[in-house]
Design a protein around this nucleic acid. Structure first.
Lengths: 229, 229
DNA sequence: ACCAGGAGTTGAACACGTTCAAGAAGGAGC
DNA sequence: GCTCCTTCTTGAACGTGTTCAACTCCTGGT
């Protein structure tokens, strides 16, 4: 769930300091927003020196990662709860996506700033970066669970790639969400509610004679394009 | 084509200074990269003071806009040339997308920095922003031309929305491209070459009995979700 | 010619993220 | 106790993007 710490914890004391810095950062991000929460202010709030904050987190961006992890952890929990008792694919996918919108809602205000940072390919916060691999794989696994616990019948090849594709779709939802200025991000919820049944129908169509070959080729393309061999 | 300048030009002299700053920035971005090209260095190269550079461009990010405009202008030209003489949809779409990759190649190194700026929803550089509407509409029109000049036969509703959807696909290519670290962005070119025929096939499948209803609903969803009325 | 007022220009100053040389604290082996 | 080494901690200092009060220059009106 949690990504690899910047520096491996050595003593309990050190781990405690590490946590207090994260807590301070969380508090200030929430109350003051991203820009106002300077490294000096965070270090101050945590009762340590600036240099010490940098001893544990090699950059401000790395500090934000803790924030990301928290959202992801909350989502994993909320999604698990929402998945319990649902069996249809539509219900399950919708539950997971809407759970994310719910969990992320309090963070929407600064989400733009976070997004900006995460968008840069070299940033450790990028959803495609190696630093966030653990988080990414966990999220993909969640979608695998969505599929496995459902009634969906698919060709083996597609079934194998689908979790990653659904995760990509989720990233699309996030992109839409970040730009969504509607009250309570209603438009994003509308998008999810309407798109999910369509995805369901589309997936069930993949077994159609004329469509099948195309799907195989799409899967082949995905495999060609995916991360380095 | 060109977006609104940060400050409206007053005197010819001022416009000249403005241009010399852009030129200096271009030169330093190319030779030194984004971070090394400091505002002080740019101002120095342009023969003006730091404060003066900020008089014309309210931030370093705003300087990038000039780059954005240049890429778009070059692409429009290259795409028009590449489209001449092609008739099949695959050829035409591929030509436009590959032309973009070609045009953008020299800028790939610091594209991540540009992307970071453009990712923030409130940024005028965001491809979804109202400030970049003119550029966006021009790009969408380019895709309309791709379709209109081709042999593709589609339902009217889909045909109407397709240019925007293709533009969205192009944004997806850009996203992939930004993260593509392969030599000369070969992987992006591979993606385009392989994905284009698949898009072609998928579009031709939309007339299939079982698929048709789904496509109609997707078009309906797109219309529901699109920008505010 | 003069003036008023806006356009254009300047560089010192500010706050920020980050680095680093220096030191303090802690523990393992003796 | 002492020594040595690693872990942990410090704050001054650096370079950056950006701001701003003050300045000069230019232009139109009289």
């Amino acid at each position: 769930m949690s990504t690899v710490p910047d520096t491996p914890p050595r003593s309990p004391k050190a781990e405690q300091t590490r946590q207090s810095i994260i807590d301070a950062a969380m508090r200030l991000f929430r109350t003051n927003g991203y820009e106002k929460a300077t490294m000096r202010a965070i270090a101050d709030e945590a009762g340590v020196s600036i240099g010490n904050a940098y001893y544990y987190f090699s950059s401000k961006e790395h500090l934000i990662q803790a924030y990301y992890d928290r959202i992801n952890a909350e989502h994993a929990e909320a999604a698990a709860a929402a998945l319990a008792g649902t069996t249809t694919f539509s219900e399950r996918l919708g539950a997971v996506l809407l759970a994310w919108v719910d969990v992320a809602e309090p963070y929407h205000e600064f989400a733009g700033k976070f997004f900006k940072t995460a968008a840069e390919p070299t940033s450790p916060l990028s959803p495609f970066s190696s630093e966030s691999e653990a988080t990414r794989l966990a999220a993909i696994d969640l979608h695998r669970e969505v599929i496995d616990g459902s009634d969906l019948k698919l060709a083996k090849a597609l079934r194998a790639e689908l979790p990653e594709l659904l995760w990509l779709a989720q990233m699309g939802v996030v992109l839409f969400w970040v730009h969504d200025t509607s009250d309570g991000q209603q438009r994003t919820r509308l998008l999810v509610r309407q798109a999910v049944p369509l995805i369901d129908r589309a997936l069930r169509l993949t077994r159609l004679p004329g469509v099948r070959g195309l799907v195989d080729d799409v899967v082949g393309l995905v495999r060609t394009i995916k991360p380095k061999p």
